[in-house]
Amino acid sequence: MVEFKEVEGYDSLKSELKSLEKSDKPVFVLFTGSKDSSGKSWCPDCVTADPVVHASVKEKLSEGVFITCQVGPRDFWKNQSNPFRTDSKLKITAVPTLIHWGQSNRLVEEQLFKRDMVDMLFED
């Protein structure tokens, strides 16, 4: 079974990951631009990637935790010293980024538009 979680901002992601420390299930995190009051993300690539990633999760991931992390508004994200970019365990340099937490495997931006590429991350 796949457990879906949504977090907003760096601190809530860290506490979510901490709570999963003892779990032996694979944890995936999708970093995406936060939605504005109209419910739309400021990041168009995130909007494109979202359905591809979710379709792949549905088909390829049978067991694990899938966290969607909204990284904040555009101005916050563009600040080069924001904690998503500087945390040595994250080093997120672009949104959207999909990572297999604790492993080196990650996909960024246009790579997340390709279904077979996303499948590869969940199959590995």
Partner: peptide, 11 residues
């Protein structure tokens, strides 16, 4: 690197 090679082949 193993992962990057797989991504490159795929792309």
């Amino acid at each position: 690197s193993n992962w990057v090679y797989r991504v490159q082949l795929n792309s």
